[in-house]
């Protein structure tokens, strides 16, 4: 099912609110379940399952192994686990926002919110830039393997400094070309047209969007009323 970009923005705001506010364990669990359901409806069941699993693991560790803080290691472990639990909703919300929303839908929604065009244009190029860089990265890794400079992808993680050295030079040299080629394409496809832009996917809010936005308001209100 498709969500309106506005709904996705509301969820990002909500996740940021939960990140900043101090919420109870029950609130946290309900919120993670809620975000997982959104991912399921959005068509990403694997992502939902993986995030739920990560959360359950973090939760389990924090109530068992790292329940009592007594030495340096338990301080570091506990810090990482609590930090992980804190940031997880934001990551889930970001996944929900990025997946299955087209460039044109974002552009149309941002335009409706009167975001200046000078901000929208670089955003569009940057969003498209990352997949190309990922694609280039894959090819660089292949080339490194053929050259025998790394034996497998794992070597990049084991020797991060060497990895950066090898990957960065071709990445940077390609980035400049990619950026100017992409800019040429967006410009010749008329992105700088001054009038209203539309989206082939429509831009009206559907029933599901209203439900999610209302639920978000309840989450924010619930922080004070119930928690």
């Amino acid at each position: 099912m498709r969500f309106n970009p506005l709904t996705k923005l509301v969820i990002i705001v909500l996740a940021t609110f939960v990140f900043l506010a101090n919420v109870s364990l029950m609130y946290e669990i309900v919120f993670i379940v809620f975000l997982g359901i959104l991912l399921l409806i959005n068509g990403d069941p694997y992502a939902a399952m993986i995030y739920w699993l990560i959360f359950s693991l973090l939760l389990l560790l924090s109530v068992t192994v790292f329940k009592n803080i007594h030495d340096t290691w338990s301080i570091i472990g506990s810090f990482l686990i609590i930090g992980g639990r804190r940031i997880l909703p934001t990551i889930m919300a970001a996944t929900f926002a990025i997946k299955h929303t087209h460039v044109s839908e974002w552009m149309r929604s941002l335009q409706r919110m009167h975001v200046p065009f000078d901000i929208i244009l670089p955003l569009v190029v940057v969003f498209r830039f990352f997949p190309t860089l990922t694609d280039n990265l894959k090819n660089i890794i292949k080339a490194l393997q053929f050259r025998g400079l790394i034996s497998s992808k794992l070597a990049l993680i084991v020797h991060p400094i060497r990895a950066i050295e090898y990957v960065l030079i071709p990445m940077i040299s390609s980035a400049d070309t990619v950026a100017s080629e992409l800019s040429s394409v967006v410009i010749t496809r008329g992105i700088s047209h001054q009038g209203i832009h539309t989206s082939i996917f429509g831009d009206h809010l559907r029933f599901i969007d209203y439900i999610v936005i209302t639920s978000s308001i309840f989450f924010i209100a619930g922080r004070w009323l119930i928690d």
Binding site: V103, V124, R128, V178, E181, R189, H193, T198, S199, I200
Partner: peptide
């Protein structure tokens, strides 16, 4: 051909230029 598209799928790519001039759905 690697860097002359801006959308993730063919359908949105075809629509892109028309969306930019504000054509109706």
């Amino acid at each position: 051909p690697k860097s002359q598209f801006i959308n993730p799928d063919v359908y949105s790519e075809l629509a892109f230029a028309m969306e930019n001039v504000g054509m109706d759905q």
